[in-house]
Lab assay of single mutants.
Amino acid sequence: HNLTITQGKLFFHYNPKLCLSEIHKMEEVSGTKGRQERNDIALKTNGDQASCENELLKFSYIRTSFDKILLRWEPYWPPDFRDLLGFMLFYKEAPYQNVTEFDGQDACGSNSWTVVDIDPPLRSNDPKSQNHPGWLMRGLKPWTQYAIFVKTLVTFSDERRTYGAKSDIIYVQTDATNPSVPLDPISVSNSSSQIILKWKPPSDPNGNITHYLVFWERQAEDSELFELDYCLKGLKLPSRTWSPPFESEDSQKHNQSEYEDSAGECCSCPKTDSQILKELEESSFRKTFEDYLHNVVFVPRKTSSGTGAEDPRPSRKRRSLGDVGNVTVAVPTVAAFPNTSSTSVPTSPEEHRPFEKVVNKESLVISGLRHFTGYRIELQACNQDTPEERCSVAAYVSARTMPEAKADDIVGPVTHEIFENNVVHLMWQEPKEPNGLIVLYEVSYRRYGDEELHLCVSRKHFALERGCRLRGLSPGNYSVRIRATSLAGNGSWTEPTYFYVTDYLDVPSNIA
């Protein structure tokens, strides 16, 4: 807008934040220059609390790290170098490059900038070799853009010569660093050979998330399962459950009422301010606690030095998902009996873990797994792929695949051998790939016309006998059925096997 004052003059007093240069501009645009008398524009009460600059400061050096910015700028000295009290560095987070010096300023003089007072450097006698002032900004957020400017702080001049310097606002972004852990990993099994893994992005990506790394490792069953005799009275049979499938998407929606109208769909109840505040506090606490764990609990591995020492970490090797089922080394339970199943799973520490690289999504279907087997899954978020990966501390989750139908069934015939004193040795093959492992066998036998009897055969007993022995049988026709019990439950009964026990007292003698 054009402003013209045809008559009258300007009068400025007691404006401590208004620089004289701005008042002189007002004289020019209003056409009143030359009308004012000496005392109409006070030299001592206008701009006496402001830094009124008329020179431009330029930054000469900028260096960044993930949490620091090192700045240096060209030296500046007023005509009387004693008038320079120091520099004021202003900075704040700036997602967009549209910041002005006066953003967030209120009537009390406060604003949204963080201000650092910096002492002037030592003055050199040689004007050509003056030290460049600077400042190291610490405690910054990774991968965050900051708006920065600097200006001088000078003393009051009796001659009211307006001098000083100020830089333009520059924008500097800190470097990326390792992201925080992925949030809320959930693993479920939808079949006997697959596990579905879902997660949420890290709360602090500290860069642009480029991919996720998912490692999985087959877990050995508890050692007590191999040692305890679950045929003993009072000892509860062990059981394991597989990871249940995901709930429906509708039930997972946030901010939804727990109660549904019987007449149909209901609208979600909005969260109160107290609920939102509580969630923010919980989120802040979780982030602080995660940072504490990362800094205190997890110790970084030592990389190899120039002395030739090897990095103890196993090298990563990509495998196809079809090879995942046989990740671990199978060892027989008892070496003397080769027909026992290889369900003991000690994992070799030198073995390469299978892994998958996930790009542009937060889910993965891990296939080719062994049925009813526990897996430990390790999830890392990465925001750099080359020249070397920059990934987060791992988040861990466990899951067990679903049982395989008929995996616990005894394959092959049940054979028998009759000894003296009416002892019958029953023999059968253990299931080759049971659900988890076989903890015991149930032997059901009966003599024709009598009630059915049951015998429990422990895992250890089966390994020693290759089956079991029935003792003290009365003469007669017998039928026997056997079924295995694994961590997933009972298998199917075998087809009945028949044998006849004679009275050993009636056996004919070869003595003449």
Rank of each mutant, 00 (worst) to 15 (best):
F285E: 14
R483V: 02
L225R: 13
E265R: 14
I377P: 00
A484R: 00
E227G: 12
E260C: 13
N421V: 10
E442I: 11
S344V: 09
S492H: 15
A309T: 04
E362W: 14
A405H: 13
G264Q: 12
E420N: 15
H425L: 07
S367A: 15
Y498T: 08
S239K: 05
E260K: 02
E417Y: 03
T502E: 04
T241D: 13
S342W: 01
E279T: 08
R318F: 14
L440C: 10
N383H: 05
T497K: 07
H425R: 05
A309R: 12
S342V: 14
V329D: 04
R318C: 04
T288S: 04
G264P: 11
S363H: 05
H425V: 15
Y396E: 10
C391P: 02
E433I: 15
E224Y: 10
F289D: 09
V359Y: 08
D291P: 04
N422G: 14
K357L: 13
R319N: 03
T307K: 04
G449Q: 12
G306M: 14
E310I: 03
K233L: 08
L440F: 15
N255E: 07
V334K: 13
N295M: 15
S474V: 12
E227V: 11
F355S: 11
P338F: 11
E227L: 13
V501Y: 07
P413K: 09
G322R: 11
K302M: 15
D408E: 01
L464V: 12
T347A: 10
K271P: 15
L455I: 10
P475F: 05
P338Y: 11
R481W: 04
P434E: 02
Y396L: 09
R313F: 14
F298P: 07
V414I: 12
P346I: 15
L277I: 13
H352Y: 13
E351L: 15
P496K: 15
V324D: 04
D229E: 12
R400Y: 05
N422I: 03
V457M: 14
L232P: 14
E247H: 03
S479C: 04
E362Q: 08
E442A: 02
D273F: 15
S363R: 04
S223H: 10
H454Q: 09
R483T: 01
E495H: 04
V397M: 05
S392V: 01
L277Q: 05
S486C: 01
G306W: 14
T333D: 12
Q384V: 13
W216Y: 15
F355R: 08
H416Q: 14
E281V: 15
S398I: 08
H211A: 10
V439I: 12
D229R: 14
P387R: 05
G306Y: 13
F337G: 12
D229V: 06
W242V: 14
N435S: 04
L505F: 11
M402P: 10
E221H: 10
L440S: 06
P434S: 08
S248W: 15
L321P: 11
R316W: 13
F246G: 08
H371T: 11
Y445C: 10
E279F: 03
R218A: 07
S492L: 13
C382P: 14
I209N: 13
P245E: 07
Q380T: 12
E404L: 07
R353D: 08
E260Y: 15
A488Q: 15
G436E: 04
S274K: 06
Q256K: 07
E433C: 03
V439P: 07
K357Y: 05
S486N: 02
C269I: 04
Y500N: 05
I438G: 01
V424E: 03
T340F: 11
T497S: 09
E389L: 09
E362P: 12
S492V: 13
L437C: 10
G491A: 04
K460F: 11
T210R: 02
I482K: 01
L232E: 12
R446H: 13
E404Y: 14
K361Q: 09
M427Y: 06
G374M: 11
C269K: 04
G374N: 11
T340I: 14
T307Y: 15
R370I: 11
E351V: 14
G412T: 08
A394Q: 08
L453S: 09
Y448F: 15
S474W: 12
P312G: 14
R481Q: 15
L232I: 15
T494F: 02
D506S: 10
P387D: 02
M427S: 10
E227Y: 09
E350L: 07
R446L: 11
V327P: 10
I410V: 11
D229Y: 15
D385C: 05
S398H: 07
N477E: 03
A381E: 00
T485A: 03
P475A: 12
F355K: 12
E388I: 15
D273L: 14
R313D: 01
L464M: 06
K357F: 13
I276W: 05
V296A: 13
L237P: 11
G412S: 14
E495L: 05
F372Y: 14
V359R: 12
E452M: 05
N477A: 09
N208K: 15
N383E: 02
Y375Q: 06
S392A: 01
Y478I: 01
T415W: 04
S486M: 13
H371E: 05
T386K: 15
L473M: 04
E260I: 12
G322P: 09
P238H: 03
E404G: 12
